[in-house]
Write a protein that binds this DNA or RNA. Structure first.
Length: 214
DNA sequence: CACCAGGAATGTA
DNA sequence: TACATTCATGGT
């Protein structure tokens, strides 16, 4: 059932290689920085962090807070996000030494560990599980709910979409990653302002646009 | 000028 | 459980 939508998107986007990142540490850092923030603003912060060799959880754990605030300023909420970054970096390093050591372990153990970190809510948790640690979960965000509502013509509980997609895709990490990536990409490229952009490629009608319009 | 962006914590009822 | 408020920069 959810395959139809995946295939419609896949015909247009193909393999997006999501999440855009050069390492798993960088993915985790990006997950925090992009909370309620456009990726263009996050990208600036990531570039600065890369120039200063800071896309590394052990280095984030040690860096001076004031300096980290300067580096990530373009991402907004920089005081809170600095605390979140220091917090998640120490938690992971103290308990597992390396992010890599959190892979291929008991899913419930890792999931509850991440969930209990301040600054990691439901969506960030799922993004880290899928994109940084390769656990088979589907990431639900507001785009997903909006798109599914318009494509299928009815409201879904986000948990029903999540478990439905996970079962239907049967733990296929590549497709789970690409599905969410394509949805985010769709939101970036189409219908930013008006409900009729004449560009939408799904069912030859405009089914997606941002904002609270319905 | 208003609104939004790859959310989450905190407080209230 | 269900909302309201706060956090903050940068693009449109």
């Amino acid at each position: 059932m959810f395959h139809e939508l995946y295939n419609e998107l896949y015909k247009h986007y193909g393999d997006l290689q999501w999440w855009p990142s050069e390492s798993d540490d960088e993915t985790v850092i990006g997950c925090i920085l992009t909370q309620n923030t456009s990726w263009s603003n996050v990208k600036k912060s990531i570039d600065i962090l890369r120039e200063n060799d800071m896309l590394d959880l052990k280095r984030i754990r040690e860096i001076d807070e004031t300096k980290l605030q300067e580096y990530i300023k373009s991402s907004g909420y920089y005081t809170i996000k600095t605390r979140y970054l220091k917090n998640i970096a120490s938690s992971i390093i103290d308990n597992y030494n390396k992010l890599e050591h959190m892979k291929n372990k008991d899913f419930n153990e890792i999931r509850s560990f991440i969930k209990n970190i301040k600054g990691v809510g439901n969506e960030t948790m799922n993004s880290i599980l899928l994109y940084a640690l390769d656990y088979p979960v589907f990431v639900i965000d507001s785009y997903t709910l909006r798109l599914f509502k318009r494509y299928y013509g009815k409201e879904f509980a986000s948990n029903d979409i999540k478990t439905g997609v996970e079962q239907e895709f049967d733990g296929n990490i590549f497709r789970l990653k690409n599905f969410h990536g394509m949805i985010v990409q769709l939101s970036k490229e189409y219908c930013k302002k008006k409900p009729e952009c004449n560009k939408c490629f799904i069912n030859n009608k405009c089914i997606y646009f941002s904002g609270n319009s319905k």
